[in-house]
Amino acid sequence: MRDYFLRRLLLIPPTFIGVTLLVFAITRFVPGGPLERAIMEARTSETRRGGDMGRSSTSEEQLADLKAYYGLDKPIPVAYVQWLGKVVRCDLGTSHRFNEPVRDLITQRLPVSLVYGGITLALTYGVCIPLGIAKAIRHRTGFDNATSALIFFGYAVPGYALGAILIVFLAARAEWFPMSGFVGENFSDLSIWGKVVDLAHHAVLPLVCYAITSFAFLTMLMKNQLMDNLAADFVRTAVAKGVSFKTAVLRHALRNSLIPLATHLGASLTVFVGGSYLIEFIFDINGMGLLGVQSIFDRDYPSVMGVLVVSSLVLLTGNVISDMLIALIDPRVRFK
């Protein structure tokens, strides 16, 4: 077992290199890179003065110059190895778009994503596990039907569209919530309690949109797994032998039912670093999701790669952790 996990850990680096190399290569093949964007901006920029720059053509020499500036003048393998060498030294390069070290960009945004991701994760697991258990036990009752309807309605709601509507009606027109942002403008002047309130006030609408779709899946997974196990012989035997129902559920059935949820946890970790681009966009929350996708749109490759480094490391460790959890919960599972 120990060897297995050791091996899993050792496999992280090659996988990491695989991911980054693949994406790195892709960045070179996407038509329209930072170069084109830069030229385009300079040429289409609306300037009242100096209109002469607007419509001129681009010479080969200018292209070569810009290529060097954006680091696109070297073949992929060389450029990749250079990049990797810097990553080892915790240098993720400089963003073309923000012109700041990518590491700073990420450290500015990671807390935001961690807060939202953490709350969302806690919220979903905190709601879904008990709800799933309750639904399994009260299968086919009014409670089961009502909650099913509720979570499926929630599931069907596209969070991004809901966000757009909530902003207009609850934030802009009713003025119950702030329209956007992670914290208010006067955040630094607030007392600790004030900060918490301010954060929570800003978080309500985005959290609703983040979480609303995620309840259904986990709840139903929990419920179905638990029902499978409740029907299994070992639970029947336990109940027949006089174990209380509560113990039967919590001790015997529940543990087995948590296995698929555990596998899901590994994937859930990405919410910490990935967030939801659409929701971050709609609520103007400067999190990792927004950074990642904006940098793709902007062809800001150092940032794309930087976000990828963080998210892939988290996901890779997350997968190992979820395997560990499986082994921990289910002793029958043997990893060789």
Binding site: P13, V81, G85, V309
Partner: peptide, 30 residues
């Protein structure tokens, strides 16, 4: 979180084949 991430990255790099590591230093100079 970051330090774990980079620690992991760091230990990963130890496995990087030597030619790559060599190239990376010269590459940086370039």
């Amino acid at each position: 979180a970051l330090s774990t991430a980079f620690a992991l990255a760091g230990c990963g790099k130890k496995e990087t084949p030597p030619p790559a590591a060599g190239a990376s230093t010269s590459g940086t100079a370039e």
